[in-house]
């Protein structure tokens, strides 16, 4: 058995690792990108702008530059200056909105359907082949079909989120419901509890932890997929923003986007973790 570690020591170590990493990054770029490029005709350089003046190379940003940029972006996250220039907060909000919409619709379908599949071994066996074939398909493979049938890029992105988040919830709900202990069902039967009372008062709470695990997996996948989906459909969202900053060669912004995506994903996971704690039970 390992001894439990105190929280503050772990936190301290985390900060040291972060400081060493950022420090090494900062130092390794010291002096780079300034006058190191090949000699070039100054007039030609003036024509092409600053990027060309440093030899056609975009320098890797230092952490301090990224920090400065992060401060700029976060000091006004919700501005809108035309369709192609919106604050990072707006972009994250677009992505979150799509994820929550697609995930919400998936939950509304997957949980009741999973319930029915879990209760009926016949339906379970009948639907299993379809689920097994469709589940491993990359959600992005659905994108062309969605664009063709829905003919709206934003709704197509929501559909892709829907299709990727439905499977873990469906399978976990079906498993959780089918694994409800026989003796609890027998208690309900001897009490003549009836179908609805048994479903909502016995099976649902018994399967809730398993269902929540499925929802947690789903929202994690949905948040992974939204970035790629928005890169494809464009327009708005953090995924689109990343791709846009790549086209602008704003490497600092891309680093910031990675950080934001990670933090929002963490927040979503924590939120469902709290929900899972609320419905957990212990024998």
């Amino acid at each position: 058995m390992q001894k439990p570690v105190s929280a503050w020591r772990a936190t301290l170590l985390s900060f040291i690792i972060l400081a060493v990493f950022l420090g090494a990054w900062e130092l390794s770029l010291q002096g780079a990108g300034q006058g190191a490029g090949p000699a070039m005709d100054p007039e030609y350089a003036a024509l092409l702008g600053q990027a060309a003046a440093s030899g056609g190379q975009t320098p890797m940003p230092k952490p301090s530059e990224i920090g400065h940029r992060l401060f700029q972006l976060l000091s006004d996250p919700f501005y809108i200056r035309g369709p192609n220039d919106q604050g990072i907060g707006i972009q994250v909000a677009y992505s979150l909105g799509r994820v929550l919409l697609g995930f919400g619709i998936a939950a509304l379908i997957a949980i009741p359907l999973g319930f029915v599949i879990g209760m009926s071994p016949l339906l379970n066996a009948a639907l299993n082949p379809f689920i097994q074939v469709l589940r491993p398909v990359s959600p992005l493979a659905w994108m062309p079909l969605a664009l063709f049938t829905i003919q709206d890029s934003s709704i197509s992105a929501v559909f892709v989120i829907f299709i990727c988040s439905i499977w873990p919830m469906l399978l976990n709900t079906a498993f959780g419901v089918s694994a409800v202990r026989r003796e609890w069902l027998n208690v309900a039967r001897t009490l003549e509890a009836g179908t609805w009372r048994t479903a909502f008062r016995v099976i649902l709470p018994a399967a809730a932890p398993t269902i929540l695990t499925g929802m947690r997996i789903s929202i994690g996948i949905a948040w992974l997929v939204i970035v790629a989906a928005e890169m494809l459909v464009g327009g708005t969202g953090i995924g689109y923003w990343v791709w846009n900053q790549w086209n602008n060669l704003s490497i600092a912004d891309i680093c910031i986007a990675i950080l934001m995506i990670g933090l929002v994903g963490l927040a979503l996971d924590r939120l469902l973790g709290l929900l899972a704690r609320a419905v957990a039970w212990q024998e």
């Binding site: 208690v187 001897t190 003549e192 419905v279």
Partner: peptide, 17 residues
């Protein structure tokens, strides 16, 4: 099953939640 005949189960069968 009927409410007229109650069962005390071997493993208490309480709902843990």
């Amino acid at each position: 099953p009927s409410l007229e005949r109650a069962v005390i189960f071997q493993g208490h069968a309480l709902m843990p939640w």
